[in-house]
Design a protein around this nucleic acid. Structure first.
Lengths: 248, 248
DNA sequence: GTCCCGTGTTGATCTGGGTCAAGGTCGCGC
DNA sequence: GCGCGACCTTGACCCAGATCAACACGGGAC
């Protein structure tokens, strides 16, 4: 998740990202057909839990539209988000029996799923599927480690800027199609969810967003609609160098 | 790294963990021989840098003996350790050209390496290598996400307890071979390195270790030799439930 | 309409861990 | 032996962010 590398969903198979991302590029028609046979869609409403940590997980799949979060919770209720699933991101643990995190839809969500057992059979017979999954998993590992730096060493303001910068890169439409122009997007998360991602409290998130607004780093319409007039400025606030670490 | 799953190095191929971990179990003699051909060893002294972030990385491999760290550094010098490489852990990014992190030996270190290009050729021809690497990468992803919870939501004391608990699980010898008995090991990291792993300062690390000692959770001989009289107590201090999250 | 309730903002105060500073211990080179 | 540098500990003080609390906004049910 959260990588340029896993961004593109090509027009011709936008309805089924996994087909494109894991397979298309290197699969022949026969393999695609077999994938097609075990494919199905699942829909969730905003707030619905896709799967609980520890539950048997008998599918893998990827997000077609909407947003989901991966979270871990301690017994006393402290929670940490460990991943954000945006369209085209993959969920699933080939070779594992059960989910390791809670997966929750934060908006209405459509996923393209494959039943796990036949998917694994197919994977074992089709080397480029395993290779593609390895690439995707390495991307996620990079993103997770990048996030460890955010959690361990950045200030609250830098954390917020880092999160906005990641969401902007994945979600934004460029205003008036001007490259380098202002980026505009809607925040897909509540202040509380942002706090859980960043290891902060929701009050601190709110205060820091207000501060970034006051300082002209971002503009807000309502509580969710964000404009970033100067992406380089935002990335500077995030403490990234201008090419943005793993996202370069 | 840091997973039970990647623990075992069998006696018969202790000289070459990758052979065992990535391949042995499912490879035939022919495949093993081809791996053997592209295998070589590298030695590093304590403090030496194995590779700098961004450098071309033309090998993959695994740690035979000694300890190395993966770290990320911001331009202003703040650093975050994102991984700890213990014997049998794998390093390398099949499909990637350059290192994403600084890799530094913190003790004398021996690695068993494979040249990347021929390794990838072999991987493409040998499905179970790619599958094994996928499993290992998923383990690392789990460990990285577990660590996000530590960094984002745990207190300094819990962080220290979490780190001790992980090192104990990987490194400890059981005192007098009594199962459930006290665990004994040497800390392979300076206080500063621990701080970098935990997102703390070295002073806080020192204070919290003193506090755990004062409270009888650990015993220290000198500055590095640790005894854990009651592992369950330590894990309780770490905020893990008794079976220890992803390490269960 | 109005009564909720989920969401977000802002203020006042507290505190865990950072920062700065002073020593202590040990091992190594000479 | 002595001096030096790497590593560690402890104390005093400070501040970023947590906590507690009050209130504002807006949309849906009725």
């Amino acid at each position: 998740m959260l990588n340029e590398r896993s961004l593109a969903v090509s027009q011709e198979c936008a309805d089924c990202p996994i087909k494109h991302r894991a397979v298309c590029a290197r699969c022949d028609g026969d393999e695609l057909e077999r994938l097609e046979e075990i494919k199905y869609y699942r829909k969730f409403e905003a707030g619905q839990t896709v799967i609980w940590s520890g539950d048997r997980m008998d599918f893998v799949g990827s997000v077609v539209s909407g947003i989901a979060t991966l979270t871990q919770t301690m017994e006393d209720g402290r929670t940490q988000m460990v991943g954000l699933l945006l369209p085209s991101d993959f969920v699933g643990r080939p070779g594992r029996g059960s989910a390791a995190y809670d997966v929750v839809a934060t908006t209405d969500l459509v996923m393209c799923c494959f039943r796990k057992a036949p998917f694994e059979v197919l994977m074992n017979k089709t080397p480029h599927i395993a290779q593609r999954l390895l690439e995707m998993t390495l991307d996620e590992l990079d993103a997770a480690r990048e996030w460890m730096l955010v959690l361990g060493r950045k200030t609250a303001r830098e954390k917020i800027a880092s999160l906005l910068s990641i969401i902007a890169r994945r979600n934004a439409t460029v205003e008036a199609s001007v490259p380098e122009g202002p980026l505009v997007f809607d925040l897909p998360l509540t202040r509380e969810a942002m706090a859980d991602y960043l290891g902060l409290t929701l009050e601190t998130v709110s205060r820091q967003i207000s501060a970034l607004k006051r300082d002209g780093v971002i503009t807000l319409e309502g509580k969710r609609h964000v404009t970033i007039p100067d992406m380089a400025r935002l990335m500077d606030e995030a403490g990234d160098d201008a090419d943005g670490g793993v996202f370069a």
